[in-house]
Every structure is written in structure tokens, then in C-alpha cells.
Design a protein around this nucleic acid. Structure first.
Lengths: 213, 213
DNA sequence: ACCTGAACACCGTTCAAGT
DNA sequence: ACCTGAACACCGTTCAAGT
């Protein structure tokens, strides 16, 4: 279905119309949709442009290359992640509690399950040099900041032991991340598995990690 | 650097020599080397053939497509995985013990760290329809069989509680898998993190999971 | 059976050129 | 500034043809 150069151009589609509004944001959204529908490996810059009725190379005005587009997707993902975690943790004025911690843990896994494309781009090997992209590094730091804040508040009320080693923190992250990955890789979608129970079982273990002994 | 058709062909390289020996196995090995050096996304069939001094399409005599080649890499990975786990668990005649379980856990994470390319292909989204490839499904089942055998032996001597729910087993897997993934994604290579301590901290938690209460 | 080159329909990226 | 098409050096895969 190629443009016929003999055709009268339709009134509403002037030949050299620039893209309406924020092309950059439109590209990020379109990329995300493609990833959601067909996976990261199916993402092509040419198709992304085409779907937005824009030339194949228009994208390079906004992104250095494909990596940079993926980095933008990841950055947006971390922003959403931060909001989801912060919402789950709730008001800083409310006293920290085990229940609030569980809400954050649940929100972590829920985010991965509801935004698998974002999560995969955020934590997969698709974005290589996180350090090289300040926007990406910043959004990732802010998201993890919510977790740090929550843990510090729990330490403040004595529910989480102080001086937790970084190795312990990594173990906590590993359990949550691993569960999230198994979920979005479809390896837990067997009828005999209760998703809620798996999340709870894991969070119970994570809580034990953190509790003073 | 293209072949010059005017050049005398070297004596040791007859024009239509077939590939020496097992081309299929050579392709799998070459693919693995490329993945190790430059990642899965850098794997191309054309280059793989070229490096083996074989035409671009010779590969299709042995594999239906790129997926099938990756499936073969994964299959080989599961075979190595099985051997590593079985070796760590050791002789079936020796009574099951917490120490032997820890050896298996360590072997799991060690395998991922020492064969990150294999592990990524085995558990990443690169191999889509595991069920469609009987060889792959079989090798995966045999590898997990070692874990099942170990757990049953531990149940036999009363160290692991019986009737452990599948959700519990998933939590155990999630923690180990998550730690492995964080390792091979390079997210734990900070100087302040002690790899051994992280593995131990996680295995301690996993053991608590399994212990009767 | 196993291997080959030519061909097809794609990629990411660069570049000179247009408004 | 922002967008464009043409061009370059790549892909995976198919196919008719060779031994």
C-alpha cells in the first residue's frame, strides 16, 4: 500500500506536515505498545516511525540510537515504578508497620506483572550503560529510594534490624526480583499455582530476613 | 576482504570440501562462543556460518531456524546444569544432609555465574516454545529432577518438611533464580558486596523455607 | 545427504537536502 | 529546528542448483 504520487493528496494530510505535538513522547509510547504486543526483540525503529506516520529517520532527531529509545522506555518505567511503590507505602505520617511493608512488596511484584514490558526493559540486558544516561540513572535511584525510605522507617520503629548488611538487602531484592521474573517469563502460570500464595510465601521469607533476631 | 576469483586456491582448502565432522555440534559451540563474547542479541546465523568456513545457509540443514539453534544451546546448557547439580549433591548412598543441600544451592548459583550465556538462553525469553522442542523439554526436566531427588532425600531423613506446597517450592526457586540473575546481569558487582556472603544469606533463607516448623 | 550462491524482504544508521 | 528519501552495510530465510 504505497503512496501513489499521481493521487490528489487528502486535505487533512498536507504533504510535509510535521508531527503533531511531542514526537519524542509519541515514539516512547509507540515503542512500548510494540514491546507489549510482540516483545523487545520485535521492536524496530522503522516500524515505530511508520506507525506514527513519520519518516524512518525522524526518530534520530530525538534519540541517538535504538539503545537511547529503550533507555527512555526504561526511564518512564522507573517513574511509574516509583509512583506505584510510593503509593503502596503510603503517607509518611502513618507509623511504619509490617502491613505497610507487605503492601510495598506486593506492589513490587504487581508492577512487574502489570507492566512486564517496562520491567523487562528496566532490568533486562536491553539497556546497557545505565550510568551513561543520567535521566535513567536518576529515575532508577528515585524508585529504589522509596524502598530505602520504607526500610529506614521500619528501622525507626524497631521492626527491622539496624546495620543490615548490604548482602542481606541483596538477598531481599533477589527473592522479589526472582519471583517477578518467573512471573513475567510465564513460568508460574500453571493452574495448580496460586499467585497470591506465592507472593505471600516469598514476602513472609523476606520479612524474616529483615526482622531483628 | 572478499575472495578474489582470480586467486589460485590454496591446496589445503579444496573448493567444495564439506564440513569436517559434526557441523551441527560445531554450530552450537560457535553460537555459544559468540554469545559469551558479545551477548545473545549479537548472534547472527551468517557470521556463525562464516566463522566455521561454511556457507550462510548450511545451517538450515541442521536447524529449522535461529530459534532452533538457540534451543540446542539451551538443551546443552541444561545437560551441563544437570551434571553440575548432580555432582554437587553427590552419591545417593551418602545420607542427605543440610550440608549437601547447601552444596547444591551453591552449585546452582555457581553454574549461572560460570555459564552466564547458557543460563540466560536457558531461562531468558530467547527460547519461546520449550514444549515444542522435546529434546529441550527433556533436558530441562532431567536437570530439575536432580533438585526434586535431593528434596525427596531430605524429606526422607526428616530435614525437609513433607507436603511442601508448590507455592513454597516456587519461592525457593525464585530466591535462587533471582540471585543468579542479578549476578549475571552485573548488578551485584560492587566492591562492597561479598558474593559468597550473598549466596550464603540467601541459602540460609531458603533452608528456613524448607525446614519443618 | 549435504553444501552452494543468488535473491527477497527486511534491519539500523548516515547523509545531503528540503521547509 | 525538524523532517525527508536515497543509500550503505547488514540481517533471516527461501530456493533452485550442484556434488
Amino acid at each position: 500500500m504505497r503512496r501513489d504520487e499521481a493521487t490528489r493528496r487528502p486535505a487533512r494530510k498536507p504533504k510535509h506536515a510535521y508531527h503533531h505535538g511531542d514526537l519524542r513522547q509519541a515514539l516512547v509510547q509507540q515503542a512500548l505498545v510494540t514491546i507489549q504486543e510482540h516483545g523487545v526483540e520485535a521492536l524496530t525503529l522503522r516500524q515505530t516511525g511508520e506507525r506514527l506516520r513519520v519518516s524512518r529517520t525522524a526518530l534520530y532527531r530525538h534519540f541517538a540510537d535504538k539503545q537511547a529509545l529503550l533507555a527512555a522506555v526504561a526511564t518512564e518505567g522507573f517513574a511509574l515504578f516509583e509512583r506505584a511503590l510510593a503509593e503502596a507505602w503510603g503517607d509518611a505520617a502513618v507509623p511504619a508497620s509490617r502491613e505497610r511493608f507487605y503492601r510495598v512488596g506486593r506492589a513490587y511484584v504487581d508492577f512487574a506483572r502489570r507492566h512486564p514490558s517496562h520491567y523487562r526493559v528496566m532490568f533486562g540486558r536491553f539497556v546497557d550503560n545505565v550510568a551513561a544516561d543520567p535521566a535513567l540513572a536518576g529515575s532508577a535511584d528515585r524508585a529504589f529510594g522509596v524502598l530505602v525510605t520504607a526500610l529506614e522507617a521500619l528501622q525507626g520503629v524497631g521492626l527491622v534490624r539496624r546495620h543490615a548488611s548490604p548482602e542481606l538487602a541483596v538477598s531481599v531484592w533477589a527473592c522479589t526480583h526472582g519471583l517477578a521474573m518467573l512471573f513475567i517469563d510465564g513460568q508460574l502460570s500453571r493452574p495448580d499455582l496460586d499467585a497470591e500464595a506465592m507472593v505471600l510465601a516469598t514476602l513472609d521469607r523476606v520479612w524474616d530476613f529483615l526482622t531483628p533476631r
